[in-house]
């Protein structure tokens, strides 16, 4: 795992802990766990997205604003990469 990826996932987990309003601790969730099954809501996805953007200095493009972007920590990390123009 690159430093970038590690840092991204840390920021994602912190944003989820702060704004995700999940029904279980983020530390108990694997990177693949379904966040919607853990109580993630539409409002919370946006709050988490804005926190990630602030923390990492990126902006999610509109085409990533759909449910599949927010389904797991893995998916969010992939979206962060896409937002930086990484494939």
């Amino acid at each position: 795992m690159s430093d970038n990826t590690y840092g991204d996932r840390l920021a994602i987990r912190e944003a989820l802990q702060q704004f995700g309003r999940l029904n279980q601790a983020v530390s108990d969730l694997s990177d693949e766990a379904d966040l919607f099954a853990a109580g993630f809501t539409s409002h919370a996805t946006v709050n988490v997205m804005l926190a990630i953007e602030d923390a990492l200095g990126i902006e999610f493009p509109d085409e990533l604003l759909n449910r599949s972007t927010f389904v797991s920590i893995d998916a969010l990390a992939h979206a962060v990469g896409m937002s930086r123009g990484e494939r």
Partner: peptide
């Protein structure tokens, strides 16, 4: 500006682009 960005993001997630 930040409110509008948040509102647009929420709307895109909830009702589509």
């Amino acid at each position: 500006r930040q409110w509008l960005r948040r509102a647009r993001s929420l709307a895109t997630i909830m009702i589509g682009a």
